[in-house]
Simulated assay, not measured.
Amino acid sequence: MNTNTPTAVLAAQWVRAQPAVAAFITSMIPDFHDAEEILQQTAVTATEKFAEYDSERPFIAWAIGLARIEALRFRQSRGRDRHVFDSEMLDLMAEAVEQEHKQAAEVRTALKTCLQKTSGRVRQVHELHYGKGMTPRAIAQHLATTENSIFVALHRARNVLRQCIGQQLSRNEA
């Protein structure tokens, strides 16, 4: 299967964007079924308008923009239902979701950089626990050590990563 076709590119982008788009929609639309309908319509619209998408822009922001339009259409079809937000509120919520996604992406990038910097037991325990999903007990057996020492190593690994991520993010802000 060719992964460079427009359909494959759209599918890959949508899979990554769908949780953020769904979160945006459900934050505005209280009814689950209505939110699902708007999400589906947004996917259809994204498919129809994908040729117009500017790949220099983040796909998620573009998809949220489409969702915003679909939510506005929904709101207009519902008239003055008190549970439906006005367009100014929708704009603010779209901005907030976009900003939240951007911050999460920055944290993921910092985490990736920090993980590359770790070594030794910290890295080994981290990879076994988070990478392979092993329990502390299984890791202790695998490394021929105590379960308590694994809990301590995981605690230290989290602290090292938390500190490193904080430093990476503050460097990015500067």
Rank of each mutant, 00 (worst) to 15 (best):
M1K: 02
M1W: 03
M1F: 04
M1P: 00
N2L: 13
T3M: 13
T3P: 01
N4H: 10
N4P: 01
T5H: 12
T5G: 10
P6E: 15
A8H: 07
A8R: 08
A11M: 11
Q13I: 10
V15G: 00
R16N: 07
Q18T: 03
Q18D: 07
A20L: 04
A22H: 03
A23I: 01
F24E: 05
T26L: 04
S27I: 09
I29C: 11
F32Q: 15
H33W: 02
D34L: 06
Q41S: 11
Q41F: 03
Q41H: 08
T42P: 03
T42F: 05
V44G: 10
T45A: 13
A46T: 15
T47N: 11
K49N: 13
F50N: 09
Y53F: 15
Y53H: 12
E56H: 08
R57H: 08
F59T: 03
F59C: 04
A61F: 07
I64P: 05
L66N: 03
I69H: 10
E70W: 04
L72A: 11
L72E: 13
L72Q: 12
R75H: 07
Q76A: 12
S77Q: 11
R78L: 10
R78W: 04
G79A: 08
D81L: 03
R82L: 09
R82P: 06
R82H: 06
H83E: 06
H83F: 04
V84C: 06
F85M: 13
F85S: 09
D86A: 05
D86V: 03
S87K: 06
M89R: 07
M89I: 06
L90P: 00
M93V: 05
A94L: 05
E95V: 01
A96M: 06
A96T: 06
V97G: 03
E98G: 02
E100A: 04
H101C: 12
K102R: 05
A105Y: 00
E106Y: 00
V107D: 01
V107A: 01
T109L: 05
T109S: 02
T109Y: 01
T109R: 02
K112I: 00
K112C: 00
K112M: 01
K112S: 01
T113Y: 00
C114L: 01
C114Q: 00
L115V: 00
Q116T: 04
T118K: 02
S119D: 12
R121A: 07
R121I: 11
V122Q: 12
R123Q: 14
H126R: 12
L128T: 04
H129N: 08
Y130E: 10
G133N: 08
G133T: 09
G133V: 10
M134W: 04
P136E: 12
P136Y: 08
A138R: 06
I139F: 09
I139Q: 07
I139N: 08
I139H: 06
L143V: 10
A144R: 06
T145H: 09
T146V: 10
E147N: 10
N148Y: 13
S149E: 15
F151H: 15
F151E: 15
F151V: 15
R158K: 15
R162C: 04
C164H: 02
C164D: 08
I165M: 10
G166F: 11
L169W: 02
A174W: 09
